[in-house]
Computed example of a mutant assay.
Amino acid sequence: MITTDFVAGSPCWLDLGAPDVPAAAAFYGAVLGWDYEPMGGSEGQGGSEDEGAGEGADMEGGMFRKDGKTVAGLGKLTEEGARSAWMIYYMVTDADETTRAVERAGGTVRVAPRDLGEWGRMAQYSDPLGGQFAVWQPGTDKGVDLVDQPGSLSWAELYTSDAAAAKEFYGGVLGWWFSDMELPGGGGTYSLVTPAGLPEERMHGGIMQVGEEVLALANGRPYWHPVFAVEDCDAAVAKVTGNGGSVLMGPEDAEGVGRLAVCLDPSKADFVVLTPAERS
């Protein structure tokens, strides 16, 4: 499970680069019950695929909150041709050392480590196959305030064409431990991710090898997406489709996991809604 007791290698922040910030704020407000708080032009932790959330003091964006607690960030998609997508940040103790590890492991530095005031230090990367992710070295801002509750991040998932290569890369860079499970019905192998040194109860995500048709969403590259917990998966899906989004898969029941659906927002950014087994 994800907690706000962030440790090295655990997801601690996420933000969305959207071509239309007000429309994205309205969509996620309707689907997940989030409130949007503009930043008034100040720069946050922002970033999304292809540096989509933009940089600079004139950045349009802000924070999503649930019951007064920060759950995610939102920024303007600025790079021409970039895909609207969620960016997941993992906590590190030294962003500069992580950058060196990424380079040694064959990854690419997309945004070099930089300070965001007293809040912390961030960097963004691509893994060797092109999957994009980011890291956060906390200062005064440790990350999101709410996780693993309805309307918040509960899991992070990578779709990739080469799970073995992904495990080697992320294990070396972020120190993750992996445990494999076979999916029912011959669906392949799913690799569960846990921060180094922690028990499996603290696993926070998974890596799944998928075919070209699934990766077409990101032009053939691997991609990370967030899984948001919801009280009622079917009701959340109805809100997705009723507010201009679409559904790629589900809703369907996953044994031992819960009821889930893979969704797209109106700008085609992907995410998953999940009613965990204990709630479904």
Rank of each mutant, 00 (worst) to 15 (best):
M208E: 11
G139P: 01
D145K: 08
A26N: 02
G175P: 13
G188W: 06
Y28D: 10
P38D: 01
K167F: 03
A112R: 13
D265C: 07
C12E: 03
C263L: 06
Y159P: 13
A166H: 02
G68R: 08
E182M: 14
G47I: 07
G175Y: 11
I207D: 06
V257W: 03
G56I: 02
D234G: 11
L183E: 09
P138R: 13
L260Y: 15
V227Y: 12
E80D: 15
V111A: 04
Q132G: 05
P138D: 05
G250M: 10
R104L: 12
K268I: 08
K239L: 14
T70R: 03
E55G: 00
D94L: 05
E201R: 14
L174P: 01
E168R: 09
E43M: 04
Y159D: 05
V272L: 14
F133I: 13
P22G: 06
A25P: 00
A229V: 14
W176Y: 06
L248N: 15
P195Q: 00
K239M: 14
L183R: 13
T241F: 04
Q137C: 09
A236F: 06
L153W: 01
F6N: 08
E278L: 13
H225Y: 10
G171K: 06
V144Y: 02
D20T: 06
G44E: 02
G250E: 10
Q124D: 09
T78K: 01
D180V: 12
A216F: 04
G175C: 15
E55D: 01
G47W: 08
V210A: 00
G68L: 09
G29W: 03
G245P: 04
G73L: 00
A8K: 15
Y170T: 06
